[in-house]
Design a protein around this nucleic acid. Structure first.
Lengths: 354, 354
DNA sequence: TTGTACGCGTTATCAC
DNA sequence: GTGATAACGCGTACAA
C-alpha cells in the first residue's frame, strides 16, 4: 500500500450486505416513546440517578417494549472505553495453546475480569502479517487493556503495546520491557528449592534440562539450579537447553545423559519436558528415582499422570492470572500502580520421581 | 438491575483515567495540515480513488507527519462493520482448550481470515454470568460474524446468536439449530469405514466407546459403527458412552470390557479416549492389536504418540476451519449461501493398533 | 475532483 | 430534574 504505515485502504473489507438484520431500536426512539429527551433516557440507562420516578418508569417501559439494547460501538466512541480487555498470547507455533498454562491463565483471568464486568477476548499474535493487524487492533481503542503472556524476546510485541500507551499487565516477567507491570512467580527460588531438595536427599551429580535462554522462566530456573549447586560446592557443568516442548525435552535429556552418564539427578525446567525425560531415562535402563531422580517444574496437571508421578515446583498460574486481572482492573480505574513485579513464592509438590 | 434485560448500568465500568495517553491525531487535523477537506482526506485513506495526485500527496504527507491512524471505533460506528470476527468456543470445563482440536481450528481459521484482512478474536462462552455478556458482546455489532465450534445442546448459545442475525458458521454440525451454515466431516462414514476395516480383518466381536449422546460427533460416530455391524450381521450391543476426555475414556473402556469380556476389537470415538483405552486394555493383560484391536478417531497428533500408534479416522479439522472461514467471509461480502452443510469425506490412517 | 452537510448512536455539558 | 446541544471521529450522498 502506498500510504503511510498502518493506514491502509482496509483492503478487502467488502461492502456489507449481510442477512436481513433489522436495525435495532435507538435511544432516540426510546426517548420518543417515553416522551422524554435522549438525555433523560440516557440517564436512566446509566444508573438512573437524578431522574424522577415518573420519567424512569416511562423510559423503562419503552425500553422493554422496544427491546432496546444500547449500541456498544456508539458507546465506545463516546466514552473511549470498550468494556473489554484482551488476553494476548504471542504464539509462534500453534501447539502452544495446548499447554495447560494457557488454560490456567484463561481461568484465572476470567475470574477477575468477570468480577469487574469486563469481557475477555483472546488475541493470538502470530509473527507475520497478522502481527501488525493485532497490534493495530489492540492499540487503537478496541480494548481497554491487555494481559500479556510474555514469551520470547524477538517479537517486539510487548514494547510496541506499552509504548502505545495501552494499559498492560504481563503474566511472567518480560525480557524486553523494563518497568512493566507484571506478576510472576519466584522462578529462581523454586529452582533452588528443588535442587536443594535433591542435594539434601543425597544427590551429588545433578544436571539440568533448562528452558530457552530467551525466556525469563528459562534463565531464572537455570539460575536457581546453579545457585543451589554452588552453595553446596557441587559442579554446575551439566546443562542442556530444551525448548519447553515434549519432543525438545526428550532430545535434551538424551544429550544430557550422553554427555554426563554419571548423573544421579536431573532438574527439568518444565513438567512437559520432564515427562519425556522420564521416558528417556527409562529407555536407558535407569530407574527413577532409584538411579536417577527427576524433578520437574509447573505442576499444572501433567505431573500426576506420569509414571512415576513427578516431584515438581508448583507454578501458581491461575492465582497469578487472577492477580494480573485485578491489577489491570485497578489500572483501568485510575489507581496508580507502581510498576513493580508482583512475585508469588515457590513451593514444592513432592511425589515419587525424586 | 431494575431495568430491562441486558440494558444495565454497565455496573462497575469505572470512570477512566488511565496513563497519560496523548490523544491520537484525528482526520480533521490531517485534513487541515494537508489543506483539504475531511472528505478528501477520507477518500485517500479509503482507496484513494477520485482524488487528484496533488491532494493525494499532500494528505499522505500529512498522515506520515502526524502519525495518523484511523480510529477504528469511529469507523465501526459509521460503517457498521468492525473488521473482526469471533471464534466462539463454548467451554464448560476449561481443559477443553487443551484439545488439539482447537489448535487446528485456530490455525485454519487464521489462514482464511488473514487472507481477508479480518482480525480473529477468540471468545470463550462459559455457562453462567459470563455467558450473557458474551452473547451481548457478539450480537451488538462488536464483531461482524462468528465461527462457532459446536458442542453440547444444553447451552442455547448457538440459537441465540443466529436468531440475533449474526452471520454464523459452525465447525461441526450443531444439534440445536436447523438450517445452519456449517462445515462438518462425514462422521457416520468415518466410523463405518473404521468398523468395516475391523470386520474385514477378521474381528467379529466389536464394541465401541462412543461419544456423548448430546453431541453430533458422538451420535454420528455411533451410528456409523452400528451401520457397519448391521451390514455384516454382527451384534451391536457392546456400547458404552464416554465424554471425549482421557479419564472418561478409561472409565468407559473398563466398563465396556467388564460387561463384554469377549470383545476382540473396540472402536473408540476419539483418539484422546482411545489413548487411555489402550492403557486399560493393556492393564487387563490383553495385547493390542493381537487380542483386542483398537480403532480411534481424529488423528490430530495424539495417535502417533501412543503405544502402539493408533489406527484412526482422519478428522480434517484444519481444512474444515479454513473452509468455514471462507464461508463466513463470503457471507459477509453479501454472497448468498445456501444453508447446506459442507461435508468433508472421511479417510483412515492405518497404524499398528488395528 | 472537491467540499458541504448530514448520519452513525451515545455520552456529557451546560443552561433552565 | 430536565432538555437542548455539542462532542466522539469518521463515512458518504449530494451538490458544486
Amino acid at each position: 500500500m502506498g500510504t503511510a504505515a498502518g493506514v491502509g485502504p482496509t483492503a478487502s473489507r467488502t461492502t456489507a450486505r449481510t442477512a436481513p438484520r433489522r436495525t435495532a431500536p435507538t435511544l432516540r426512539q426510546v426517548a420518543a416513546a417515553a416522551g422524554v429527551s435522549r438525555a433523560t433516557a440516557s440517564r436512566v440507562i446509566n444508573g438512573g440517578h437524578l431522574v424522577s420516578d415518573h420519567a424512569k418508569q416511562a423510559v423503562e417501559a419503552a425500553i422493554a417494549e422496544l427491546g432496546f439494547t444500547p449500541n456498544p460501538v456508539a458507546r465506545n466512541l463516546a466514552t473511549r472505553r470498550t468494556g473489554s480487555v484482551a488476553l494476548v498470547v504471542p504464539e509462534p507455533n500453534a501447539r502452544l495453546l495446548s499447554d495447560p498454562f494457557f488454560g490456567s491463565v484463561i481461568n484465572g483471568l476470567s475470574l477477575s475480569l468477570e468480577a469487574a464486568d469486563l469481557q475477555m477476548i483472546l488475541v493470538i499474535a502470530r509473527p507475520g502479517p497478522g502481527h501488525d493487524r493485532a497490534v493495530r487492533y489492540l492499540t487503537t481503542g478496541q480494548v481497554d487493556g491487555a494481559v500479556i503472556t510474555s514469551h520470547h524476546r524477538e517479537d517486539l510485541l510487548n514494547a510496541r503495546l506499552v509504548e502505545a500507551g495501552l494499559p498492560c499487565v504481563f503474566v511472567g516477567r518480560p525480557l524486553d520491557v523494563e518497568d512493566s507491570h507484571c506478576v510472576d512467580m519466584d522462578n529462581v527460588g523454586g529452582a533452588r528449592l528443588a535442587t536443594e531438595y535433591l542435594i539434601e536427599h543425597g544427590r551429588r551429580r545433578i544436571g539440568t534440562v533448562a528452558g530457552p535462554a530467551d525466556m525469563t522462566a528459562g534463565v531464572d530456573r537455570l539460575l536457581g539450579w546453579r545457585q543451589a549447586l554452588e552453595g553446596a560446592g557441587l559442579p554446575t557443568d551439566a546443562v542442556v537447553h530444551g525448548d519447553f516442548t515434549a519432543a525438545g525435552g526428550a532430545e535434551a535429556t538424551r544429550r544430557l545423559l550422553a554427555e554426563h552418564p554419571d548423573l544421579d539427578a536431573i532438574f527439568v525446567a518444565s513438567d512437559l519436558m520432564a515427562s519425556t525425560a522420564l521416558t528417556e531415562v527409562a529407555a536407558l535402563g535407569r530407574r527413577v528415582p532409584d538411579d536417577v531422580a527427576v524433578f520437574g517444574f509447573d505442576d499444572l496437571g501433567l505431573a500426576t499422570t506420569t509414571t512415576p508421578p513427578l516431584s515438581t515446583v508448583i507454578h501458581p498460574v491461575e492465582a497469578m492470572a487472577v492477580r494480573a486481572g485485578q491489577m489491570l482492573v485497578e489500572m483501568l480505574s485510575g489507581i496508580e500502580h507502581a510498576a513493580e513485579p508482583v512475585v508469588f513464592p515457590a513451593r514444592l509438590a513432592l511425589r515419587d520421581s525424586a
